[in-house]
């Protein structure tokens, strides 16, 4: 099992637009990726390809989340996903 932490960079948190970008990126992978708040039990982790899961996680700006995946290429995949979460997508506009 690969595991990475990421700090949410979007100023309003993981809301619709950043969540959509992230969910799209997860959906394009051939891996099952989960996301949970740092410190939460691993069983509470949610499907990272679901925009509604991401939104209901309620992760705010500056909060730390844990990404987990298993299988070939998991390390590289998580690395790229961390980069997405640590980008402020609201600053692009």
């Amino acid at each position: 099992m690969s595991e990475r932490t990421a700090t949410i960079a979007s100023r309003v948190g993981l809301h619709a637009r950043p969540a959509a970008i992230f969910a799209g990126a997860v959906g394009a992978l051939d891996l099952e990726v989960t996301i949970g708040l740092e410190g939460d039990p691993i069983d509470d982790a949610m499907d990272a390809s679901s925009i509604l899961s991401l939104m209901s996680l309620g992760a705010g700006h500056g909060q730390v989340v844990v990404l987990r995946a298993e299988g070939a290429g998991a390390d590289e995949a998580l690395e790229s996903l961390v980069a997405i979460l640590e980008t402020d997508h609201d600053a692009a506009e």
């Binding site: 499907d47 390809s49 679901s50 925009i51 509604l52």
Partner: peptide, 15 residues
């Protein structure tokens, strides 16, 4: 419309 389109087939909702 774009946001609701994403929600329509969302894994959390459907599962």
């Amino acid at each position: 419309l774009e946001a609701t389109a994403l929600m329509a087939a969302d894994p959390m909702l459907i599962k």
